Amino acid sequence: MNLTLRAYQILVKLLEQKGEFVSKQVLVTEIWGGSFDFNTNTIEVYISFIRNKLDKPFGKNTIKTKVGYGYYIDFN
């Protein structure tokens, strides 16, 4: 599985939180340094990319969304 640097950084951040929600704001701040407009759909695009690489080939849904807040990983 090949991921871009940013996608990899997002995945690592989600894995580090061990099932806890990670807000979009935290992702923007920690991965981009807060250097882009938070109202863009950039995070959603990266999450979709990761899901297509991580989940789709295996029929899984490990990256969960809390609408309006952020994401977490659930391996159950």
Rank of each mutant, 00 (worst) to 15 (best):
V22W: 08
Y69V: 11
G68S: 03
N52S: 09
K24C: 12
F36Q: 08
Y46N: 10
G70L: 02
Y72W: 09
Y46L: 09
N52L: 01
L54W: 13
I73Y: 07
Y46Q: 13
G59P: 06
K24A: 12
T62D: 00
T29F: 10
V45F: 10
D55A: 04
K64I: 02
E44S: 13
I63V: 07
N76H: 11
K18D: 14
S35E: 14
E20C: 07
V26G: 08
Q17Y: 12
T65C: 03
Q9A: 09
F49H: 09
K18I: 11
I50P: 02
T29L: 13
K18T: 13
R51K: 15
I63P: 01
L5A: 06
Q17L: 12
F58K: 11
F49K: 11
K60E: 06
N61F: 07
V28Y: 15
E20Y: 08
K13D: 04
E20K: 15
L5M: 04
N2Y: 15
Y71V: 01
Y72H: 06
N52P: 00
I43Q: 01
T62G: 00
G70Y: 07
Q25I: 09
K18H: 15
L11T: 04
L27D: 08
P57E: 03
D74K: 11
K18L: 04
K60S: 10
F58G: 00
V26Y: 13
V12P: 00
P57I: 00
Q25G: 04
N52E: 13
L15S: 15
R51V: 03
K66E: 11
E44D: 14
T65H: 03
L11R: 01
F38K: 14
T4K: 07
T29A: 08
L14A: 10
V67M: 11
F38Y: 14
K56P: 00
F75L: 14
V45P: 00
T40N: 10
G19A: 02
N2G: 09
N61Q: 12
G70M: 03
E16S: 09
N61G: 07
D37A: 14
L11W: 05
M1V: 08
F49M: 08
F58N: 10
I63C: 04
T40R: 14
T62V: 10
F58Q: 07
G70Q: 06
G70C: 05
N41S: 13
G59R: 06
K66L: 14
N39E: 12
G19T: 05
K13M: 14
P57N: 02
N52H: 11
L5H: 12
I10Q: 03
Q25H: 15
K56Y: 12
T40S: 08
Y72A: 05
Q25C: 00
G33E: 04
G34P: 07
N52R: 10
N76I: 09
F21P: 05
E30Q: 15
F36A: 05
P57K: 01
G33H: 07
G68I: 06
T29C: 05
K64P: 00
S35V: 00
P57Y: 01
K53N: 05
K66D: 09
I63Y: 02
